[in-house]
Design a protein around this nucleic acid. Structure first.
Ligand SMILES: [Mn+2]
Ligand SMILES: [Mn+2]
Ligand SMILES: [Mn+2]
Ligand SMILES: [Mn+2]
Lengths: 218, 218
DNA sequence: TTAATAATTTAGACTAACCTAAAAAATGTT
DNA sequence: AACATTTTTTAGGTTAGTCTAAATTATTAA
């Protein structure tokens, strides 16, 4: 059985290999875990000994298929709990991540399957992120960053990329939620900021950085 | 902030001082924590340094008022989660304890208050045990062991004393649940076993030990 | 009231996860 | 190709929680 820490490292390696390039480098892993490179080295050695990653000195780490499915199970739990907190307990989407970081480590298959059923087998979490199924299969969605979307063509917000509380609170404040319809009215060359309309109603300017953290589809 | 282990020790000290005589002795604490006396000694020293218990060498430990309220908060969480598992997720009463042992350590006051509200502010958990309120106040119930109850006088099952899965499964099998009406038809002098009727219907014999672990009221 | 027994504490050691500082390897630059 | 810089690993140490074995204190019995 894995410790909380081992589970957190596996999840971090998964997310880093999703985002960046393979293999996952020690310094990136240490940053992501808010720890030091020496500690990350200790842990990758341990995970490699458990065959959850393949690891070569000075080269980096890659999840094995066992490691990947363990990581996906932690992510499944995290996202199901976030969904529970929002849908059933009335948390807002900016409050749930921290609590889910703890709940994702509860050890009980029965619990997570019953929770999934209680929630009606949701496909995505409150941030629009896909929830892996009981077998660890995750449905990749072909979404594009709002910053790359064409001007004057309506799109729907599907997910946030950066899920930090401050970004989520900002989105709530300006009326952007999952499912909302956007339209890029104008793109400002100077700084890459966008003038957008939200649900055909109010127009507002958002920064390039904000637009890069919104995932949309047609 | 307390570690999982510290919380578990505090809870054990609370339950031992509830059940037995004060102060709580090292060996009893070690047994209850399924560890060794030397480890229990280490921990009582630490808890005493944190002013959660008073402790004198060779004498034993008593909770301070801070220690008691911390213990009661863990118990509140444990019992609310057990209630959630049974009421909302469809667990049976013999399955929930182990999972609640993990869930009781999740750190979030907001979470537990929202959970309480979601459950409709339950007063007791699935085993009939009282749930401390948000201030740590616990409502003591004047219940009596079925083994001490008079013959041929109807009573209602309010709680189980021993909550082990095997006892709970046995109770389910013979149709004893919280709220069921019992009547002692006969008391067997030989071994203290009881012949009882359940809900005015079927009659059955139960052992003295079983009767000592059922709490009833008139 | 002394001796035997039981309970408790101390001593010393282990593991997981972390740290800092130093050494080694890889990478970049002239 | 040689040197400088960055990245990564190793060495050695810390803390929380555990253990076994030995020492100490308390309790019971002769
Ligand atoms: Mn999250
Ligand atoms: Mn999420
Ligand atoms: Mn329980
Ligand atoms: Mn209970």
């Amino acid at each position: 059985m894995l410790s909380f820490t081992e589970e957190n490292y596996l999840k971090a390696i998964y997310h880093l290999s999703e985002a960046g390039t393979l293999p996952v480098l020690t310094n990136d892993l240490a940053d992501s875990m808010k720890t030091k490179a020496a500690s990350a080295t200790d842990m990758v050695k341990k995970l490699a000994a458990k065959k959850l990653i393949s690891y070569q000195k000075y080269y980096g780490a890659n999840l094995t298929s066992k490691g990947k499915s363990d990581a996906l199970m932690v992510i499944r739990k995290h996202r199901l709990w976030e969904t529970f907190l929002v849908e059933k307990l009335g948390f807002t989407w900016d409050e749930v991540h921290e609590v889910a970081e703890q709940l994702e480590h509860i050890q009980s298959m029965t619990l997570i399957e019953k929770l999934d059923s209680f929630l009606g087998f949701p496909k995505t979490d409150p941030h629009g992120h896909p929830i892996p199924d009981a077998l660890g299969k995750i449905k990749e969605m072909k979404q594009v960053h709002l910053s790359e979307f064409p001007v004057r063509k309506k799109c729907v917000v599907r997910a946030v990329k950066n899920g930090s509380p401050s970004f989520l609170q900002y989105l709530s404040k300006i009326g952007i939620r999952i499912g909302v319809m956007l339209n890029i009215v104008d793109k400002i060359d100077f700084d890459g900021s966008l003038e957008i309309s939200i649900d055909h109603k109010k127009k507002i300017f958002i920064s390039k950085e904000a637009a890069e953290n919104l995932l949309v589809t047609e």
